[in-house]
Amino acid sequence: MAEKASPSSNSISLKTVDGKIFKVSPAIANQMLTIQPLIKDSDSSTIISLPDVAAFHLTKIIEYLEGKPAAAPSAVDAFEAQFVKDLSPEELKGLLIAVGYLKVNGLVDLMANTVAKLIENKSVEYVRKFFGVVNDFTPAEEAKCRQEHAWAFDGVDED
């Protein structure tokens, strides 16, 4: 889908970390706030390399930017719901990093919201495992922390 973007003279070339080159229209590229300043100075021959973005993620981002309906909020919601539905948690995390790096309009919020939903009503252990967070509390600190937040666990047996 990236390749089908109009190969007009002013299309922007983006190079991902795995060496693939995507040509996108300035309208699409302009929604990636990180590369926005670079677009002004570039012509069709410049290639902007994106060291933190893999081809898969850029494909997804372009898919989002191209496919997002401009009109009714309900259509946007439906489109966004479908967009994140197809993503596995692994892909979601990778995409979030890419989106965070590129600062893609709208998509940052969508990703953040989706990740947030994944940890809703989940145990502390689940969140640790899901995100690969190292528990750096000492047992005493953790006990204290859990005690302070006992209201949130509300009868849930944590053991």
Partner: peptide, 17 residues
């Protein structure tokens, strides 16, 4: 992300690290 996490889950997140 935390902005989108409900308050009660935010409290659990606090116990993660």
């Amino acid at each position: 992300i935390l902005e989108y996490v409900p308050g009660v889950d935010l409290a659990k997140v606090a116990c993660v690290s």
